[in-house]
Write a protein that binds this DNA or RNA. Structure first.
Length: 289
DNA sequence: AGGCAGGTTCTTA
DNA sequence: TAAGAACCTGCC
């Protein structure tokens, strides 16, 4: 079926923003997006009525998309996953080009990014794995972990299906050798500890979801292998605390270069995390180009 | 061939 | 409280 999306929505930009590690792009340009026990195929097939259909500028601003699921599934699962009930244009409109030209430029260039509402457990593990590694290595390990312990789900996609992200219990059940094959390196112990904490109930994901920002942060920091940066990423991408502002090596450089007097967090409350995504993506693309 | 990677932990002053 | 080394592994 086809759906029209009016707000910012650019699949390639979201995929490159570094918040998710399992999206794949097919040869025909469509995207395959796994979430829990579902997988969506989605492709942009046109512009919204009345919009200028001119390349990248058009793609950032949503459009018409072909999805391989029913309307009910889209509205019950994927609408939430893509955070389509949040108005990103409104968030961007708070950025004043006179006050903050750098962020304004970043947000214009990176328009189309959204903060996905991913599975919390998957986000926890993925970002524990992410530390001190580059993106290809992170993706590789996440995929190996899914193959090692995830449930096989059949669908109409290529290969006839995919591996769901494994539950904490499934990770616990993995023997040492199988987990070692996921090439997690020294993070292996962290992942196992996290799985045991959640499986045993020592860490309650539902409680985490309803906790205050401070409480959630404290719980996350108590887990082995989770420091301030990873906890911020989990808060932003796993708990949808869109004011969380992860500071990694890239953001550190942007802040040092563009905000020597400090980033004006109070100006963008409670959407600092969205601003962080614009800054991060923009800085990375401009540096690698 | 090696440095370095979207950090965290552990050790030392 | 604050630096600095060590950590697995595999990209580039």
């Amino acid at each position: 079926m086809r759906i029209a999306i009016e707000d910012d929505f650019d699949l390639a930009k979201i995929a490159e923003s570094g918040q998710c590690f399992r999206w794949t792009r097919c040869a025909d340009g469509s995207w395959l997006i796994p979430y829990r026990r579902s997988r969506l195929r989605i492709a942009r097939v046109g512009c919204n009525e009345g919009d200028a259909c001119d390349g990248d500028a058009g793609e950032q601003a949503g459009g018409v998309f072909e999805v391989d699921c029913a309307g009910v599934e889209f509205s019950e699962v994927w609408r939430g996953y893509f955070d389509l009930d949040e108005d990103y244009r409104a968030v961007r409109s708070r950025i004043d080009p006179a006050d903050d030209p750098f962020l304004f430029e970043a947000a214009e260039a990176q328009r189309g990014i959204r903060i996905l509402r991913q599975d919390l457990w998957e986000v926890i593990v993925s970002f524990i794995i992410s530390q001190n590694r580059n993106i290809p290595a992170i993706k590789r390990s996440v995929e190996l972990l899914c193959e090692a312990a995830g449930e096989r789900v059949a669908d109409h996609g290529p290969d006839g299906g995919f591996y769901a992200f494994p539950s904490p219990e499934a990770v616990c059940a993995l023997d040492g050798e199988s987990l070692a094959r996921c090439r997690l390196g020294y993070r292996e112990g962290y992942v196992r500890a996290a799985a045991e904490s959640v499986a045993s109930g020592a860490v309650d994901l539902e409680a985490l979801r309803s906790a205050s920002d401070d409480e959630a942060f404290e719980t996350l920091l108590g887990m082995r292998g989770i420091g301030i940066k990873v906890a911020s990423c989990i808060a932003l991408f796993g708990l949808h605390r869109v004011n969380a502002f992860p500071i990694d090596t890239w953001i550190k450089k942007v802040l040092a270069r563009e905000y020597p007097d400090g980033f004006p967090f109070e100006r963008y409350e409670p959407y600092n995390g969205i601003c962080q995504q614009y800054l991060f993506a923009h800085y990375r693309t401009t540096m690698s180009d």
